[in-house]
């Protein structure tokens, strides 16, 4: 028996919006730790890892580990039927082939439930080792989103370089080229407005902007994004989900052929 009650239902709505364009079908794993997901996009260039810890739910009952395969577009459609202030409860029976999403409005005078068929998906769970990154940059998520959007009007790929000067985003296209540098800036009114650069070693990597733009769909989940870069590893863009966990996007670089 699985029963997860999330008071801030809007979080789940936002999580689905952040993932549904990148990943079509995915297995949600439910255990005592929490509600999680790991999935790659169809071309295996990007990977998303989600964790909503059990402590973040008002009620969390998961008698045994359950894997539930779902089409994210369909889940997103169902969650669009929930109001932003609704409480969302996810229910499933052990060994069952359906999941139920229940929505309660704040006045508790409207209760909806939607039952959805689960899918049997081949899960290809990848082991992601802990790594020391050459550079870790925390910046306002809205700023990162703006940069990715602006640069994609000029080019298809971006070179992200971190030096002592700051983090530089460069692109080139038919009309010319563009560089945006964000310097470390900690003299801000609110900590979430800061740009903080931790650099062990200078790093420069090339990425497809299309994927980075897709990751920025998570912007509404967190005011800051943490970008981790290492020359031998995929980029990680992490959006923390307040009091609950995170959504992390991994993106494999483009390398010299």
């Amino acid at each position: 028996m699985l029963e997860l009650r999330l008071v801030q239902g809007s979080l789940l709505k936002k999580v689905l919006e952040a993932m549904k364009d990148l990943v079509t079908d995915a297995n949600f794993d439910c255990s005592a730790t929490g509600f999680s997901l790991q999935a790659m996009d169809s071309s295996h260039v990007a990977l998303v890892a989600l964790l909503l810890r059990s402590e973040g739910f008002e009620h969390y009952r998961c008698d045994r580990n359950i894997t539930m395969g779902m089409n994210l577009n369909n889940v997103s459609k169902l969650l669009k039927c929930a109001g932003n202030d609704d409480i969302i409860t996810i229910k499933a029976d052990d060994g069952g082939d359906t999941v139920t999403f229940m929505f309660e409005n704040p006045k508790q005078d409207k209760i909806s439930d939607f039952e959805m068929k689960l899918m049997d998906l081949d899960s290809e769970h990848l082991g992601i080792p802990d790594a020391e990154y050459h550079a870790i940059v925390r910046m306002p998520s809205l700023e990162f989103s703006r940069i990715c959007k602006d640069l994609s009007s000029i080019g298809d790929t971006v070179v992200i370089s971190v030096t002592k000067e700051g983090i530089k985003f460069s692109t080139r296209g038919d009309i010319g080229n563009a560089n945006i540098v964000c310097r470390q800036n900690t003299t801000v009114d609110k900590p979430e407005e800061a740009t903080v650069i931790q650099m062990n070693e200078a790093v420069s990597l090339t990425f497809a902007l299309r994927y980075l733009n897709s990751f920025t769909k998570a912007t509404s989940l967190s005011e800051t994004v943490t970008i981790s870069l290492s020359s031998e590893l995929p980029l990680v863009a992490e959006y923390k989900i307040a009091d609950m966990g995170y959504i992390k996007f991994y993106l494999a670089p483009k390398i010299e052929d």
Binding site: M40, S43, H44, V45, A46, L47, E124, H125, L126, G127, I128, P129, T157, T206, A208, E232, L233, P234, Y250, A252, P253, K254, I255, E256, D257
Partner: peptide, 14 residues
């Protein structure tokens, strides 16, 4: 020309 790498060349199943 740059080649797009895949996630699976960095992380392996397990």
């Amino acid at each position: 020309v740059r080649k797009q790498c895949q996630i699976t060349s960095f992380f392996s199943p397990g």
